[in-house]
Nucleic acid binder design. Structure first.
Lengths: 199, 199
DNA sequence: CGAAAATTTGACATGACTCAACTGGAGTGG
DNA sequence: CCACTCCAGTTGAGTCATGTCAAATTTTCG
């Protein structure tokens, strides 16, 4: 594991509860560094999700594919964020989603058993991963709230405000999939058609 | 705290990681039992969410109110489940949601500081609350996936299959609010209009 | 029992999708 | 450097999904 990767990981934990020297020493033993090419997968539907992944650099999307073959983006994740399919990872059951690199990426991955080892032997990891998931839960809940209470316009505006960096990095097709609308309709929203009052 | 309440709480933890005798002894000291009338609030928008709540019996809804005064249900929770506004609870900031009893209910509540006390002094509570939130996260993610990938019909059908007990206990208005549709349209879905081919 | 809430229904308006065609860049190979 | 393809993005026309509003009916709960 490279030094810069390790430092970013330590810094990420530090934002919740800083690690002790002994805890820090575990990281290179338990995490594996890996390069992923653009369009590379770290999880495919049907496989068991074996890793909890920390993104050092790059960008990923997590999506499900419906019966008609359409992709539906569940989330994006960029550098200094975590991604996994929690449901598959903990239950060790086949996943229903894909996790794919949108950009060439550098990641640190920990296997299920190694994470359980950390949980069991160090109180702090239980705590820090509790907080990681809590933050993700809060994001998801805001998203659910938006999906049931706002117009599609507003949801797009909010996306632009909340993830300005993603708007530049992603094609609109991907954002449309995330918002649950067609690319054509997103195009019209962007043109401002739907917000114009009649002349 | 009554014995039956305590037993249900212990049993709830046991489904993740069973508590030791010492840990069990903390529960009556840290949790407070409370009766809530139908339509009673345990959290109102604008207030800080001070408790993590375990439901012994009864049923609650968590919802946000938009500018037009409409309610949007984020989640329901029944006996043997947990409910709080995580975002307000941990940040100790004013909440944007209400949590209201749909039925007369009996609950156990723990305050922020008491929960932090348990987290700090007993590894097991960090772990068990990590698992509680992970399960809720998985539910939410499935919900997001449905909202961006399925028709309204399917979402209602899934709701009926996944929460058969709730369908009996809740008025359809509440379910419509949860699904993000109008009560009128839900009524039509239930009539099967939207799936019927033309005569 | 009586008031308030929930449900259903009809007519109409609007949001959002589909499909097909067109535009305009970003590679790629000659 | 040009011609070509490929893909994201845009646009228009028609259609289906869902919302709005209003009224009639039923259910629920105090």
């Amino acid at each position: 594991m490279s030094n810069t990767s390790l430092e970013l990981l330590i810094k990420n934990f530090k934002d919740s509860f800083p690690l002790t020297t002994k805890e820090k020493a575990e990281l290179p033993l338990r995490f594996t560094e890996r390069n992923v090419k653009r369009r590379g997968f770290i999880l495919q539907s049907g496989d068991v999700c074996k890793h909890f992944t920390f993104i050092v650099s790059g960008c990923f999307k997590q999506y499900a594919v419906d019966k008609e073959g359409k992709e539906h983006n569940l989330q994006f994740a960029v550098e200094n964020e975590w991604i996994t399919d929690l449901s598959s990872f903990y239950a060790e059951k086949p996943s229903g989603v894909f996790i794919e690199a949108i950009e060439p990426s550098l990641i640190l991955q920990i296997k299920h058993d190694d994470l359980l080892y950390l949980y069991t032997n160090y109180h702090k990891f239980d705590r820090n991963f509790r907080i990681i998931v809590e933050k993700k839960y809060i994001d998801l809940q805001n998203r659910v709230l938006q999906s049931i209470s706002t117009t599609t316009d507003e949801r797009y505006q909010n996306f632009v405000i909340e993830y300005p960096n993603l708007v530049n990095r992603l094609p609109n097709t991907q954002i449309a999939s995330y918002l649950g609308i067609t690319p054509e309709f997103l195009s019209r929203i962007r043109k401002g058609l739907s917000s114009k009052p009649k002349p």
